[in-house]
Amino acid sequence: MDPLIITERKRKYKPDLIVSGVIIAPVLYWLIANPVPIGFAIFAIILLLIIPGFILAGYIWDVAAKITLSKDGVIFSYGRSIYDIVNFEAGFKIEPDSKFIWKNISNFDIMSLSSQSSGGSDGVLVTSTNHYLIMFYRNEDDLPAYWRQGLIRLRRFEKTPAEILELCKEFQKRVRSYARPVT
Score class of each variant (00 low, 15 high):
Tyr13Ile: 15
Lys14His: 14
Lys14Met: 12
Lys14Cys: 09
Asp16Thr: 15
Asp16Tyr: 06
Asp16Gln: 05
Leu17Thr: 01
Ile18Ser: 01
Val19Trp: 08
Val19Glu: 06
Val19Lys: 13
Gly21Gln: 00
Ile23Met: 06
Ile23Cys: 07
Ile23Tyr: 00
Ile23Lys: 01
Ile24Cys: 09
Ala25Trp: 03
Ala25Tyr: 11
Ala25Met: 09
Pro26Met: 04
Val27Ser: 10
Val27Thr: 09
Val27Trp: 02
Leu28Arg: 04
Leu28Tyr: 06
Trp30Asp: 10
Leu31Glu: 00
Leu31Phe: 06
Leu31Pro: 00
Ile32Cys: 05
Ile32Trp: 12
Ala33Ser: 14
Ala33Pro: 10
Ala33Asn: 15
Asn34Cys: 07
Asn34Asp: 02
Asn34His: 15
Pro35Cys: 04
Pro35Val: 13
Val36Arg: 15
Ile38Gly: 14
Ile38Asp: 13
Ile38Asn: 12
Ile38Pro: 14
Phe40Met: 13
Phe40Ser: 10
Ala41Phe: 13
Ala41Met: 13
Ile42Gln: 10
Phe43Ala: 08
Phe43Ile: 04
Phe43Glu: 04
Ala44Gly: 04
Ala44Pro: 01
Ala44Ser: 10
Ile45Phe: 07
Ile45Leu: 11
Ile45Ala: 12
Ile45Pro: 03
Ile45Ser: 07
Ile45Lys: 11
Ile45Trp: 06
Ile46Cys: 13
Leu47His: 07
Leu47Trp: 13
Leu48Asn: 08
Leu48Phe: 08
Leu49Glu: 00
Leu49Ser: 12
Leu49Lys: 03
Ile50Arg: 04
Ile50Val: 13
Ile50Leu: 09
Ile50Phe: 10
Ile51Arg: 04
Ile51Lys: 04
Ile51Val: 14
Pro52Thr: 01
Pro52Gly: 03
Gly53Asn: 04
Phe54Lys: 02
Ile55Met: 12
Leu56His: 10
Gly58Leu: 05
Gly58Ala: 01
Tyr59Ser: 05
Ile60Thr: 00
Trp61Arg: 10
Trp61Asp: 03
Trp61Lys: 11
Trp61Phe: 14
Asp62Leu: 11
Asp62Met: 09
Val63Lys: 07
Ala64His: 08
Ala64Val: 12
Ala65Val: 00
Ala65Ser: 05
Lys66His: 12
Lys66Arg: 15
Thr68His: 09
Ser70Ile: 04
